[in-house]
Amino acid sequence: MKHDITFTINGESVHLTVLSHQTLLEVIRNDLGLTGPKYGCSTGECGACSVLLDGEVVNSCLVLAPEADGAEIMTVEGLSEDDELHPLQKSFIDHHGVQCGYCAPGMLISAKALLSRTSRPHEEEIREALVGNLCRCGAYADIIKSIQVASRARR
């Protein structure tokens, strides 16, 4: 079954025809060519596919594309503005918040969601906010530090 849907992604409005059983992840990667969100598990356990859906972090592998009709979506590609890296991205570079990097786009999206409601999160709050993002390299400590430093710099 086909659905004509419209949503905005990283500030741009897109109009698409999708099938009922396509996931938002699939559409973002294959139809829109945005490779930030990654396939990691398809079971909502790893968070590599995280995007913001109407401002809230979700696993895009478990959102059906037609469910996103009318929504506002942000992927990691939408973080930087005019080629200027977002403070979170800069901080991840400076504080080794990235190793193999596969989890990084999802981590950044979770961090963005956290900072949009808590401007100066404590370490414990950051840990809780990242609990749905797995990092096999074990870079959690540096990721947390990157987010903390970025949140302080934003002031």
Partner: peptide, 19 residues
Amino acid sequence: PFPLVEAQKKLTGVSCYAG
């Protein structure tokens, strides 16, 4: 201190992995 060379690509979602 020296950052990872590919960090920026990985953090901006630019195509970089096999998939």
